[in-house]
Amino acid sequence: MFIKFLLIFLIGIPTIFCAKLPDYIKPCKLDDANLNSCAYNNAKAAIPRIAQGDPKYNLPSLSPLHIHQITLGGSRSLNLSLSHVDIIGIPDVDLQTLGITFNDSIYRLTASANVPKLNVKGDYKINGRILILPITGNGPANINLDDVFFEVEYDLKPETKNSKEYLKLVNDNIEMKVKHVTFKFENLFNGDKRLSAEMDKFIANNSQEIFNELKPAIIEVIKTVCLSILKGITNKVPLDELFVK
């Protein structure tokens, strides 16, 4: 349920109208033998401007990305939520590969990218068990993810709206790897210094395992951010503007 609300927050209620491709995103020719090279170069050049946000296309500012609330742990053993969240570092993304293929009326977009460092700050509430230990608390949280690698895949299919063809997302997938992660939760156990110190040590020694437990929810957040950018363009820009003849 939360992810649906986050998606609405980021991309707004879809409004279909014919818009030109933003001048900071250059189109490519679908029949160009160097299509992938064209798409990669144009996308890489557009990232700094996309990161600034664009209300006309419902693109959120990514410098930083502000999110009202994120639920990272919703299992039977752990409830972890963050509110008033800032995600810092997205504009530093290094696009490594980008490919576009077309087959059986499906446009497939694949890409890989690396973010040197993501910093997530917010107010947390946690209750339950983290791996094997009980945990509770609320207060400021600081999560650092170093050397974050993403692979994404989107399938899009043309659909006609108001006599124009637009690309509609029909399938998506994202994979994520993190080289190193740290968690800092202040005011654990209602400020009990002894219990907090023990938990801080446990979290530091098991940070990768804790990340793996939270990873599905983190991927959903990243997926929603990526979709906000993709749909911000494809919901409003017709196919013949995205790929010129």
Rank of each mutant, 00 (worst) to 15 (best):
L131K: 04
G53V: 06
V115T: 13
K179Q: 11
T234V: 12
N114T: 15
I3F: 12
I132R: 04
A217W: 08
N127Y: 12
I132V: 15
N138F: 14
Q96V: 11
K29W: 01
R49F: 14
V120I: 13
P27K: 06
F102K: 13
L21K: 03
G74V: 04
T101P: 03
N144H: 12
I16F: 13
G89H: 05
S81H: 06
I88V: 10
L214I: 05
P22K: 05
D147Q: 15
H84I: 04
L10I: 10
I106R: 08
R194K: 15
A204R: 12
A39R: 03
L65A: 06
P14A: 05
L133K: 03
P140L: 07
K4G: 12
I229S: 01
K164Q: 11
E175Q: 09
I90W: 10
T110D: 13
D147I: 09
I222Q: 10
L214Q: 01
F2L: 11
F183C: 02
K184I: 08
E209V: 00
N171V: 03
D155W: 02
S163I: 00
D94Q: 15
A217E: 13
K201H: 10
I100D: 01
F150G: 00
I88P: 01
E153L: 13
F2H: 12
N171H: 14
N119L: 15
L95M: 10
I174H: 05
D104Y: 10
S163A: 06
T182Y: 03
D92M: 10
D200K: 05
K184L: 14
T110A: 07
F102Q: 09
A217K: 12
P134V: 02
Q96G: 14
I218N: 00
S77A: 15
L62C: 12
F243E: 03
E213W: 02
S37G: 15
L72H: 03
G74R: 08
I229L: 11
V221L: 08
K20F: 11
G53M: 05
R194Q: 14
G74F: 06
F243Q: 05
I218K: 02
E159D: 03
L82P: 04
T234S: 09
L239P: 03
K121P: 01
P116E: 01
K179R: 11
C18V: 13
P22L: 05
T224H: 04
L82T: 06
D192E: 08
G139A: 07
R194N: 13
D23A: 10
Y154I: 09
T15E: 15
A204C: 00
S207I: 05
T160M: 00
L214V: 07
P140G: 08
L62A: 13
F202I: 06
K44C: 01
D146K: 10
S207T: 09
M1N: 12
K168C: 04
